[in-house]
């Protein structure tokens, strides 16, 4: 057998073995029948201060007594971010009167381009009550670490964008005591998010 076929076979077997390991990993947070992950026990997270879309300082602890849904993104993102905010809008509509007990928060991972003015135009295009938060990279970086959010600026010389931002597309639910309780994958059915959120009231 030529050497390269052996090499190829080795690579394929190796890749298959790795894939098997990945899918067999059932440890971590308890899965439940509803989509989304319930953190039990809740994860204690630090308070933070950022600047909101009106230019005022905003602390996570300002939301005590409310359930908060947080998404990390940037206003130049062409589809994942607006799609998620549109789903927030649907969640809010499905909550009806209970929407007053929930805060919807968009945290920018592109503090350089997302000024409060830019964020204001953006979040208000979805709902006047949505909250946009921005800040310097060091602050946002620390918050992201707390939530397990990855984000990274990637520069492209060939792109007029200069840089694009790769980022975690999950939505996070924080309970009324300010503890991290819920994690939803991108594209989770808004009705399931509503059911999960109501369980935290």
């Amino acid at each position: 057998m030529p050497r390269w076929t052996l090499l190829l076979a080795g690579l394929l077997i190796g890749a298959a073995a790795l894939a098997g390991c990945g899918s067999g990993d059932a440890s971590g947070p308890t899965p439940t029948p509803l989509p989304g992950t319930l953190l039990d026990p809740p994860k204690e997270i630090g308070d933070f201060t950022l600047t909101d879309h009106t230019g005022q300082p905003f602390r996570l602890s300002d939301l005590r007594g409310k359930v908060a849904l947080l998404f990390f993104g940037y206003t130049n993102c062409p589809d994942i971010c607006p799609t998620t905010l549109a789903e927030f809008k649907r969640v809010k509509a499905l909550l009806g009167k209970d929407a007053a007990r929930v805060a919807f928060v968009f945290v920018s991972v592109d503090g350089e381009r997302d000024t409060p003015e830019q964020l204001a135009a953006y979040v208000r295009a979805f709902d006047p009550e949505f909250i946009g938060l921005t800040g310097d990279d060091a602050t946002i970086r620390a918050i992201a670490r707390d939530y397990g959010v990855f984000y990274q600026r990637v520069s492209y010389e060939e792109s007029a964008a200069g840089y694009l931002v790769d980022h975690t597309a999950s939505t996070f639910g924080v309970d009324q005591e300010g503890r991290l309780r819920l994690v939803f994958s991108y594209g989770t059915d808004p009705a399931a998010i509503v059911a999960r959120v109501r369980a935290l009231f």
Binding site: I80, F150, S159, H167, Y186
Partner: peptide, 17 residues
């Protein structure tokens, strides 16, 4: 530009030209 966006199993959204 022509871009491609992907969401990996790690839930990270990546966009590239």
């Amino acid at each position: 530009e022509i871009h491609e966006m992907t969401i990996g199993e790690d839930q990270v959204m990546r966009m590239r030209p």
